[in-house]
Design a protein around this nucleic acid. Structure first.
Length: 845
RNA sequence: GGGCGCUUAGCUCAGUUGGCUAGAGCAUCUCGUUUACACCGAGAGGGUCAGGGGUUCGAGUCCCUUAGCGCCCA
């Protein structure tokens, strides 16, 4: 035991010791009922480290540490989510390169020392190599933070969502889905990000309020009479396929079944009826285009309208003049907007309409919700492409019902988070689009046969042998073919796409748990006990994981979902980089200590958004310091056998402690780590402030050896128990204190139980009586503005007889602790305890 | 527009099935160097539990309603 204990240096000391001793190693001889398995979020390593990480990972770590002490073999792997768009973006900026899949691989390629002004085009394989290289660096920084924070992860179990095992699991699961017809391809209108030139899924969408403008435009009836529509997208006029109004709208009823002609382009389009047309909106009649928004897609599908696409994959107006525009005027107008971005085309179109006299009144500015890719910064377009989908109930009511039921049978912490899941599943409007036209991801593991004319036969899907996984169809060759047949008529071609990141990270339990490659491990961990995560990814990560487990095995992937809240800055806004209020987590850990920061994090209950508060971290650090000092005191007193405990107040302490143990245990079983910590903390401060002060002199031996032994034995038991109760939250200081008297780690010691403590038959109400008397003794000195050491000549305790009887049991300790010179006198009285106190005259008075 | 959550002391938050004379920490004020701890200790002040209505012997807690904040979904 150090002379002057300190928190400084505990992190590095114990990080290393735990690593060397394998303290957190998963014991894979344990069978399923003795395992606690955690499917923890693989963080996106290309993002920056922030306090949100520290926050939520502390929560599950507290639970993991409790379960470990509770006798479970804890399966707690860490993964890194490195595949996907964020990494591609980071590599582009970091190295100044971009992926051009048409280029050949350059084995001698080295990235420029400094990113140039223009991004250097490189082959896909070179690009992927850089992605892998950079993520390995990023992962080191992440691991360092996690270790520093004291997460009790088994680092031997780490995986990456791009590593060979993950790719293999992901591809194998996809092939299973394909075989069961749960994965399918479809040529369909798709939400498309023009910047990244990839399809995006419903789960990746977000609505953003954007300025727009209503343009009032006249179409023309056969008799030349105008009919007015209002649109925010006049540039799509050449893509118009019909006008639509509500079937009950008397203004337009006579027009249904007739045709009108579009201005400038002179294209004849039908007027149709559909209930989705809103009579209140604009003029009540709208143009349907290929495709302005998802409602256009619905109309197009349900009314079986033609397809007239004019927006290309790059978000610009397609250059070639469409064949449905025949007149010279229309063709010239189209040429004027061809090649422009949607934004520029809109302005040009407005000009042209003004010239032709078909733009009426003022352009009316509005603000309206526009769909964006959550990682993108241009509005999504809708283009028709061939994509892969996985069924998720989005267009299949029975499956949807099954998935809603699955969600309901998860034990959510807090419970109300389940509605997020239900809202999402019930609002799905299509299957899960999993193919992405990107590069750094798990390839869609199929090839297609090429017809004699060289065109792909999309329905002639060539699948790899499971034993060959993972594969890359752009370099691997399907069975029965040779590389020479790639891209030639009668040969084959690889699917050029990769899968959505979520298509792989929805399989983290399978990847970490050994599905398909370590059946022994799988049988010990599956289904997992808990999925900890933040609420904003319930619709993505949580839901997609449920989908995959349901499709594969008709089971839930885990029993519990532990949902963390967000970190809010002091203005109650979500912490974000753009606001410049993100704090570097390592600096925080340096300044307040890992235990201090963990204390703050653990004070945020499941699902509750929590203010970023260094004050709480300071309190946590103070608690850790207090634990050091109180432990030093208790352990310096020496110990004694439990049988030595004879004093009623010592037994009372243990009885109260038993209640705390039960409370903390019950809270942990309900995943309420905050409540468990608060119970321990409240008791600890009462213990140090009152009980230690009360029994200190007796413990020194001032009342004889028998009474001293009773105090010491009770103090030791209490301290040991408290250290264990704090261990899940403050792993460093508790380990330090524990190590003074134990060989084995506190983190592998058994969680305390209350039975042994209750066996002393203490009466915990004694603590309340002694505490109240102690308070009044102190108060009398405080009000007299004298030292706590000042002597009291006489004190009379007034209380009901029952209470007086209890007071007498503690009188000896109270007398010495309060520096009362003569024995207490007692007066029976109804009501609260009250004291009449006479202070010894001080030298000044 | 639909849904979920929140609103309790200056601040951050507890408050179980209604029993509360509403708690804690921080901050504030006063006092105290006491051999575990000055990164300390002791004591004190501070609240119409967002507003309104209802149920009940009794409401911070249950019901209705209004307002504000946050989030999810459309």
């Amino acid at each position: 035991m150090p002379e002057k204990p300190t928190l400084d240096g505990l992190e590095s000391k114990w990080m290393q010791a735990w690593d060397e001793a394998g303290t957190y190693s998963f014991d894979r001889s344990a069978t399923r009922e003795n395992v606690f398995s955690i499917d923890t979020p693989p963080p996106t390593v290309s993002g920056s480290l922030h306090v949100g990480h520290v926050f939520s990972y502390t929560h599950i770590d507290c639970v993991a540490r409790y379960q470990r002490m509770n006798g479970k073999s804890v399966f707690y792997p860490m993964g890194w989510d490195d595949n996907g768009l964020p990494t591609e973006r980071r590599v582009q900026n970091y190295f100044g390169v971009r992926c051009d899949p048409s280029l050949p691989y350059d084995p001698n390629f080295a990235p420029p020392a400094e990113p140039g002004k223009d991004q250097l085009p490189i082959s896909r394989r070179n690009f992927v190599e850089l992605c892998v290289q950079l993520t390995i660096e990023d992962e080191k920084a992440f691991e360092e933070l996690w270790r520093r924070l004291g997460t009790s992860v088994d680092w031997k179990l780490t995986y990456q969502t791009i590593d060979a095992r993950a790719r293999s699991v992901s591809q194998r699961m996809f092939l299973n889905n394909l075989e069961r017809n749960e994965a399918y391809q479809s040529e369909a209108p798709t939400l498309w990000d023009v910047t990244f030139r990839t399809a995006v899924a419903q789960a990746e969408l977000e609505d953003r309020e954007r300025p727009g403008a209503y343009h009032r435009i006249s179409f023309h009836k056969p008799d030349g009479e105008p009919i007015f529509i209002e649109t925010t997208r006049p540039e799509l006029l050449p893509a118009c396929v019909a006008l639509v109004a509500h079937p009950d709208d008397d203004r337009y009823k006579p027009l249904f079944g007739t045709t009108v002609t579009s201005p400038i382009f002179g294209v004849e389009v039908p007027v149709v009826a559909h209930t989705l047309a809103d009579p209140e909106k604009g003029s009540g009649i709208a143009m349907i285009c290929t495709f302005g928004d998802t409602t256009d897609v619905t109309w197009w599908r349900e009314l079986q309208l033609p397809t007239r696409p004019i927006i290309g994959w790059d978000g610009r107006i397609i250059s070639e003049i469409p064949d449905w525009i025949s007149g010279e005027l229309g063709q010239n107008a189209y040429s004027a907007i061809a090649g422009l971005t949607a934004h520029s085309a809109k302005e040009k179109m407005a000009e042209l309409l003004k010239e032709s006299g078909d733009l009426h009144g003022e352009i009316r500015a509005i603000v309206h919700p526009v769909k964006f890719f959550e990682k993108g910064d241009k509005p999504l377009e809708i283009v028709t492409t061939r994509q892969w989908y996985i069924r998720n109930g989005g267009r299949d009511a029975p499956l949807r019902t099954e998935l809603v039921d699955r969600g309901r049978s998860i034990k959510w912490h807090p419970d109300h988070m389940k509605v997020r899941y239900e809202n999402w599943v019930e609002g799905l409007n299509g299957d899960w689009l999993i193919s992405r036209q990107r590069f750094f991801g798990v390839p869609v593991p199929v090839w297609y046969g090429l017809a004699a004319d060289g065109n792909p036969m999309w329905d002639k899907i060539l699948v790899p042998d499971v034993a060959a996984l993972p594969i890359d169809p752009s370099t691997d060759v399907p069975a029965g073919y040779t590389e020479a047949q790639r891209g030639v008529p009668g040969g084959f071609m690889g699917d050029p796409d990769v899968m959505d990141t979520w298509a792989t990270s929805s399989l983290t339990p399978q990847i970490a748990g050994g599905w398909g490659f370590d059946e022994d491990l799988w049988s010990r961990v599956w289904p997992f006990d808990v999925r900890p995560q933040a609420h904003e990814i319930i619709r993505t990560w949580l839901f997609s994981t449920v989908v995959r487990a349901h499709l594969e095995e008709k089971v839930l992937p885990w029993k519990h979902a532990l949902i963390s809240g967000w970190i809010l800055d002091p203005d109650r806004k979500k912490m974000s980089k753009s606001k410049g209020n993100v704090v570097t987590p390592l600096d925080l850990l340096d300044e307040h200590g890992s235990d201090g920061v963990r204390y703050w994090a653990a004070s945020g209950r499941p699902g509750t958004d929590t203010a970023f508060d260094v004050g709480q971290m300071k309190i946590g650090r103070r608690l850790a310091t207090k634990i050091l000092n109180a432990s030093k005191f208790v352990l310096t007193q020496g110990s004694a056998a439990p049988e030595a405990i004879t004093e009623p107040i010592d037994k009372a302490l243990l009885a109260a402690l038993a209640d705390v143990v039960d409370e903390a245990t019950k809270a942990f079983e309900a995943f309420n780590y905050t409540k468990a910590m608060e119970a321990a903390e409240k008791f600890f401060w009462e213990f140090t402030d009152d009980h230690l002060e009360l029994v200190k002199d007796r413990s020194y031996g001032l009342a004889g050896e028998v009474a001293a032994q009773s105090a010491r034995a009770a103090l030791t038991i209490t301290l040991d128990t408290l250290i264990k109760l704090f261990a899940p939250f403050l792993p460093f200081v508790t380990e330090e204190v524990w190590s003074w008297t134990h060989e084995e780690s506190v983190h592998k010691s058994p969680w305390p139980t209350s039975e042994a403590l209750r066996a002393f038959n203490g009466d915990s109400s004694l603590l309340g009586v002694s505490g109240e008397i102690l308070l009044q003794l102190r108060k009398s000195k405080s009000e007299a503005k004298v030292s706590m050491k000042a002597e009291i000549t006489k004190a009379t305790i007034s209380a009901p007889a029952q209470v007086l009887a209890k007071a007498k049991l503690v009188a000896a300790d109270l007398k010495t602790a309060g520096r009362v010179q003569s024995d207490f006198t007692y007066a029976e009285a109804a009501g609260q305890i009250s004291l009449a106190i006479e202070l010894a005259p001080t030298s000044e008075s």
